[in-house]
Structures are given as structure tokens and as C-alpha cells.
């Protein structure tokens, strides 16, 4: 299966704070050599805590921040593409943002919001566009009465449906959903996930689904990539990652998620010592080493572990995980578990 989106060593460096007024800004390495592929029709979830670089990755792919490295979408090198190339990319690659209140223009009617991408890309004539807009609104489960309304008259869930309809207007192959359901209430969240799922099946859409909420990705994603301090530290099919996470950080992250069932005893929680690593940190070794329960002196602080394949579809960036049979995985032995 050939990749629809292929990232190769994509890095983003932002300007950080200055030590004093006339000092040069400290560089923040928001994204550190990220390599990743998404196949056509695949849902890849990107999880991680705030500041780990999830949204920066989405912004690098859509060229909203300058990035180094190579990012190929459908054969086009996004990071070097000219205007015409970017127009082609944008037809195939659309984005849905977190907050449906600020991502829709409140002065435009829904019909005009959905019409805009069609106009910009010169799709069809007026009648054809109107027909398309009516089809779009039906696709996302809303009534055509909605078209004459303004965003203020819609609920949060309805607005997010409009954002999705707008993203679908140009019949893209890949939709980046940046925390697209995080701002919604639980019962509405599930409605939007069902909508995204059925659209995926009907149109063979691929999603890059960015979220901090592990509960949402477990069933929705085909594969999951875990980010930490600007790096991807683990990638695996969803069921494999939940069943046997290899990176010590992933293990702590999964253990921290509350589980909504009382039938089974809550699994022991892995407690990480210290505070999350600063985006300004530039240690020579593993960025997680300071908090890691399985830190080994002489190994982990020497070099940054590369992302390597471990088992059939499982990739992990951890020196200890490469040692083979993960006997070290006994978190209890480190004393880092809740009693």
C-alpha cells in the first residue's frame, strides 16, 4: 500500500523567549525529525500532552509554520511546492479545527461558508455549486433549512458538522482533525465520531486525528502515534498499542486515563517523577530520561534513541525497548506504581 502522506525528518524550530532584551531568541525545537506515513483510507491518531508538538505537526503539513525536511502528499513535496502545487495539495488535504465557534465566520451564512472553497477552486458554475452545497449539508446529517442561517443560531455539534462539511467540499483524500471533538459534550462527541466514521467508509477518506483524549482513539483509530517533546516515540496499530505499549511514557499515559467501568479493578497507575520536559531542553540523550522509571545510566543519557521497528507493525524510540524481550517492563519493580 503506497503512502498518501509521507513525512521524512520534518522539523520545526520556533523563536522562543529571549534571555534579556537584546539577546537572540532561544530556539524552541517544537518538532524534532518526525517521520510518519498515512495510507489512503487510514485513520492515524496522534496523541500526546499539550506542548508535545501535535498541532505543530498539523501546521507544518499545511504550511502554516515553516518547516524543514520532506513532506510528500500524493507525490507533491508540500514544503517546497509553489502556489499551483499548494492549490493541488489543499484540494486533497483539508483541516477541521477544535473550536467550531471561532473557526466559522460569524458574519456569513452557512451556505456561503460552504460555497467559499468551491468558488476559490473554481468548481462548477453557480447552479452546480448550489447543488453541491445542498448535498454536503445532507451528508453531515443536517437539514437544508440550515443553509440560510448564521453560525450563531447553531449548537456546538451542528457547527462542527458544518466545519466537516466545509472540509469535505473539495472531496479531499486526507482530513486533518485537530482536536475536532474535544470541545464537544460526550453524547455529541460520539455523534461526530460516527459521522466521521461513515464518511471515511463512503469516500475512502484518510484522517490524521489529533487528540489528547485516549478514550476517543481506542476504537476510532487504525494506528496511533504517540508524541513527546516534539518527537514521535511510538507508533502501532491501535489494538496493539493498548494491549502492549512499549515506551515507558506511553505506558504512563495509558495508565493515567480514567476508565468508565466499575466491573474491573482500576489498573495500577504509573507515576512519573518530576515535571514534563521543557521545550527548550537540549539534552544529548533521550528527552524522557529524567522522568523514566527504566532509565539506565550510561545508555539513556548518551544518545537520543531513534524510532525503530520492533515486531511487525510496532515502532518505538527507546534504548531499553531495543534490548529485546522487555523483561524491564515490570513497572512495579521500580516502585513507580500506585499502591
Amino acid at each position: 500500500m503506497s503512502a498518501l502522506l509521507e513525512l521524512d525528518d520534518v522539523s520545526v524550530t520556533l523563536r522562543g523567549p529571549r534571555a534579556h532584551l537584546f539577546a537572540a531568541p532561544t530556539p524552541i525545537r517544537a518538532l524534532r525529525q518526525v517521520s510518519l506515513t498515512i495510507a489512503a483510507g487510514e485513520t492515524l491518531a496522534l496523541v500526546g500532552e499539550s506542548g508535545s508538538g501535535k498541532s505543530t505537526l498539523a501546521r507544518a503539513i499545511t504550511r502554516l509554520v515553516p518547516a524543514a525536511g520532506q513532506a510528500r502528499f500524493d507525490g507533491i513535496d508540500i514544503l517546497k511546492a509553489d502556489r499551483a502545487g499548494m492549490r493541488r495539495v489543499r484540494r486533497g488535504l483539508q483541516m477541521v479545527f477544535q473550536d467550531p465557534y471561532s473557526s466559522l465566520n460569524r458574519r456569513k451564512r452557512i451556505a456561503d461558508i460552504l460555497m467559499e472553497p468551491l468558488k476559490v477552486h473554481g468548481v462548477g458554475d453557480g447552479a452546480e455549486r448550489r447543488r453541491r452545497v445542498e448535498a454536503l449539508i445532507a451528508q453531515v446529517g443536517l437539514n437544508t433549512d440550515m443553509l440560510q442561517r448564521f453560525p450563531a443560531a447553531l449548537s456546538g455539534g451542528q457547527r462542527q458538522r458544518i466545519s466537516i462539511a466545509r472540509a469535505l467540499a473539495l472531496q479531499p483524500q486526507l482530513v486533518i482533525c485537530d482536536e475536532a471533538v474535544s470541545a464537544l459534550d460526550v453524547s455529541v462527541q460520539a455523534q461526530i465520531l460516527n459521522l466521521l466514521g461513515s464518511l471515511k467508509r463512503s469516500y475512502k477518506l484518510a484522517y490524521l486525528f489529533i487528540t489528547h483524549d485516549l478514550g476517543v482513539v481506542r476504537r476510532f483509530a487504525d494506528r496511533i502515534a504517540v508524541m513527546h517533546a516534539g518527537r514521535i516515540i511510538e507508533v502501532a496499530p491501535a489494538n496493539l498499542l493498548f494491549a502492549g505499549p512499549l515506551h515507558p511514557y506511553t505506558r504512563a499515559l495509558l495508565s493515567a486515563a480514567p476508565h468508565p467501568s466499575r466491573d474491573r479493578p482500576a489498573p495500577a497507575r504509573i507515576l512519573l517523577p518530576g515535571e514534563p520536559v521543557s521545550a527548550l531542553a537540549e539534552p544529548p540523550g533521550c528527552l524522557f530520561a529524567k522522568r523514566c522509571l527504566h532509565f539506565r545510566p550510561g545508555l539513556c543519557e548518551k544518545s537520543d534513541p531513534p524510532l525503530v521497528t520492533q515486531g511487525a507493525n510496532h515502532q518505538v524510540a527507546c534504548h531499553r525497548a531495543r534490548e529485546g524481550v522487555p523483561a524491564w517492563m515490570d513497572d512495579a519493580a521500580t516502585g513507580g506504581l500506585t499502591p
Binding site: V186, S187, A190, G215, R219, H259, P260, S261
Partner: peptide, 9 residues
């Protein structure tokens, strides 16, 4: 509400 949360997991 409970069913929709649990169905995620």
C-alpha cells in the same frame, strides 16, 4: 451518557 462513554472504550 454512560453508554456513550463506555462504548468509546
Amino acid at each position: 451518557l454512560l453508554a456513550s462513554v463506555q462504548s468509546l472504550w
